[in-house]
């Protein structure tokens, strides 16, 4: 009965964990950049300019955003349902997906059934498939002007900034990374500051030694603890016998070989003879019954 209880508890736990695990990727989605007033920025597939909302997937795996909800109304979290079955709803790792807030959801999956209003604060939120769990939300301030975007820095980061395309740092980047990574500065710095690699060698060896030294100290302490326990139990260090390991077939074979060798050595004298144990190659396929021809 007790075992059954444990099984039920474990099964319930697993059942609860399963949907949580599948939704984990969606929970990480972030509203990454928003443009409310699009006068001369990008156009959609129909040649129209309209407000857009960019979602970013910061995880290391692709996330399918189908079944989530987008809304501009806090009292109506399920305003736009992202349809299932469209390959366009999959966001690759670290990538973005653009939704058009043009009020024309008949133009396709990525066109929302609401618009954003310039000159006023715009609330935007994404909800999980249950329509209750908030994934992310933002209120775009009214001060964001025409062709300017309201974007996170860095992508999916906590800081928001108004971007006006005036320079590279404030570029409007629909469907692209808010912070484009340049060349690897670390490597450039090492090339400049540590031409001969002495600093790298010293730092790296320090870390390797440090990590293994800490491990060494830790196990010296554990050894001391074992000794103390052994003494308390009335045994010396040398007799700290390991707990018996479950015997395997190999152990049994080795034991048999040693026993036979000892027996031969003690009782028969070993001389130059060699003890050989052959595995029995017999199997069901080589059994006598398999070799007999069927009788008529």
């Amino acid at each position: 009965m007790k075992k059954l209880g444990k099984f039920i508890a474990l099964a319930t736990l697993l059942a609860m964990a399963a949907p949580a695990a599948s939704a984990q990727g969606r929970k990480s989605l972030r509203i990454n950049e928003v443009m409310v007033s699009n006068e001369s920025s990008i156009v959609d597939d129909f040649g129209n300019r309209s407000a857009w909302i960019e979602l970013h997937n910061p995880t290391a795996a692709a996330v399918d955003v189908s079944s989530i909800y987008l809304t501009d109304d806090p009292s109506n979290p399920t305003k736009y349902f992202v349809p299932r079955g469209d390959a366009a709803t999959k966001i690759a790792k670290g990538q973005q997906l653009l939704f058009w807030a043009d009020g024309n959801d008949n133009h396709g999956t990525l066109h929302l059934n609401f618009t954003l209003t310039p000159g006023q604060d715009n609330f935007i939120a994404i909800y999980d498939a249950d329509g209750i769990s908030l994934i992310d939300s933002v209120t775009v301030p009214a001060s964001v002007g025409a062709d300017c975007s309201y974007a996170r820095t860095p992508d999916s980061g906590d800081t928001w900034q108004i971007r006006d395309d005036s320079d590279a740092a404030s570029a409007v980047t629909p469907g692209g990374l808010n912070n484009v990574k340049g060349p690897n500065n670390k490597i450039a710095n090492f090339e400049k500051m540590d031409k001969h690699g002495f600093a790298m060698a010293a730092m790296a060896m320090g870390i390797v030694f440090g990590a293994l030294f800490v491990l060494c100290i830790c196990f010296i302490m554990i050894r001391s603890l074992s000794r103390r326990n052994a003494k308390a139990a009335g045994s010396s260090d040398a007799t700290l016998a390991p707990a018996p390991r479950p015997a395997t077939d190999a152990d049994a074979e080795v034991a048999a070989v040693i026993a036979l060798a000892l027996n031969q050595y003690l009782n028969a004298g070993v001389g130059n003879s060699r003890l050989t144990i052959n595995h029995n190659p017999a199997s069901a396929w080589s059994a006598k019954i398999m070799r007999e021809l069927p009788r008529r």
Binding site: G197, F209, L212
Partner: peptide, 25 residues
């Protein structure tokens, strides 16, 4: 585990990596 100070010997041999790093540069 029986002789934890041997970990330091394992660490010291990694100098081969960083020595070669310097030569590669």
């Amino acid at each position: 585990i029986a002789n934890p100070k041997l970990m330091l010997v394992g660490a010291s041999a990694q100098f081969g990596i960083f020595g070669a790093y310097m030569v590669a540069l």
